[in-house]
Nucleic acid binder design. Sequence first.
DNA 1: GATATTTATTATTGACAATATACCTGGACC
DNA 2: GGTCCAGGTATATTGTCAATAATAAATATC
Lengths: 227, 227
Amino acid sequence: MTVTKIASRADEQAEIIRRVEEDIIFGRLPPGARLIEDNLMERYGASRHFVRQALVHLEHTGIVQREKNVGATVRSYSTAEVKQIYEVREMLTRQAALMIPLPAKASLIMELEAIQAEYVRYAERGDLRGIHDTNDAFHIALFAACGNPYLVRSLQDYMGLTLPMRAKNLADHNGLQVSIQQHDMMISLLRGNDNWALSQLCVEHMHSSKADYLQRVAVPGPNLGPD
Amino acid sequence: MTVTKIASRADEQAEIIRRVEEDIIFGRLPPGARLIEDNLMERYGASRHFVRQALVHLEHTGIVQREKNVGATVRSYSTAEVKQIYEVREMLTRQAALMIPLPAKASLIMELEAIQAEYVRYAERGDLRGIHDTNDAFHIALFAACGNPYLVRSLQDYMGLTLPMRAKNLADHNGLQVSIQQHDMMISLLRGNDNWALSQLCVEHMHSSKADYLQRVAVPGPNLGPD
DNA sequence: GATATTTATTATTGACAATATACCTGGACC
DNA sequence: GGTCCAGGTATATTGTCAATAATAAATATC
């Protein structure tokens, strides 16, 4: 019940979005779960207006589905959709990686190393939210180096869209270790000259979470009991 | 003052968005113009709620800029930004075109021919709005054939973003004729087997409006007077 | 030239309206 | 007598609005 003094009213909505996202990512709100405005209002202590706006945003992002006069639910993705989403994300990723001038500037490498250090710290602590955020920050910082902010924006769109799929992977100890190693490899490739290798690594980096998710979808969790 | 019985309240917002877009596209609202809620409310006979919502949407689209407590303005693009936007759009377009299975199904070709016929009709009549809409419809229908709705969605995003740049080109008689011819060529390429040629044509198809816009930006219109 | 004041504009809120869904009741047909 | 459908009512939920507060920019004043 800490009040924590929300910085400004404008950030309040962003905060709601973050928290709903978080709840979705970490499975507290499973796919298909209804997002009822009144509940969210109470849960986050916000007015209907902000909650609604947050839902509109999340709908646009793609992780929430809204139906007029009926309400919002957490969206779930079929295997076909997951493949399609990743197809585009991989394409954008590959392209962005190829556009990064190599060898990268020292400032970029320093920035990434700083983020990576933080990432490792969160990983050790098992702070899921921190892991997730620094992971995203790492990729954004990396791809920003491609020089085209619009490409980065689109990549971010797809990172948001694949949020639910990636979360579980980062919670898994093994997957997390692999992710950390791959980030390190990316940094070392930035010192070299091989855009193609970088591009390939970035695409592979996505592969595990995608495969993982598809597997999870194919074999529905047995510990949920009959429905 | 025709009332025209707006189909449903939900469509009202879409209608406002359409009309604001239209005003921006056709230059009635030039880049930098302020979009004042009260004005729009009166102009479109809508409540503040819908106008605001429309502005939020247009901001997300990218053709409107909003600053807290200050208001919304029509966004303008620097040459660098235009190039970056088109860089991504071309990339997505190329990719989508390469993914269309050739030769295309007869149903697709029929659909495109129908749209194209409408397009020509609007062109003859000089109906700018109709020209614009059918042109977009043509491309959406074409690229939908790539089989990945998410790729199409991203393409649509960029079509929206380049809206202000493309409009003037479609108003120009010459540019319009070229556009019509290129559409015909696309349809005939769909009957063949050469994805690469199709891809190339689609990218070239964008080139004229892009070049045109960049030229227009480079040589500011002289009939606006000093500011 | 700095500061107070006014004005134009957007942000926020809570009350109310509209809508869809779930539930319940009554009746008819099997 | 039981069951299933139709209709209507209640309820849960979202949609809309208009009044008010908050903010930033412009203007006037000293």
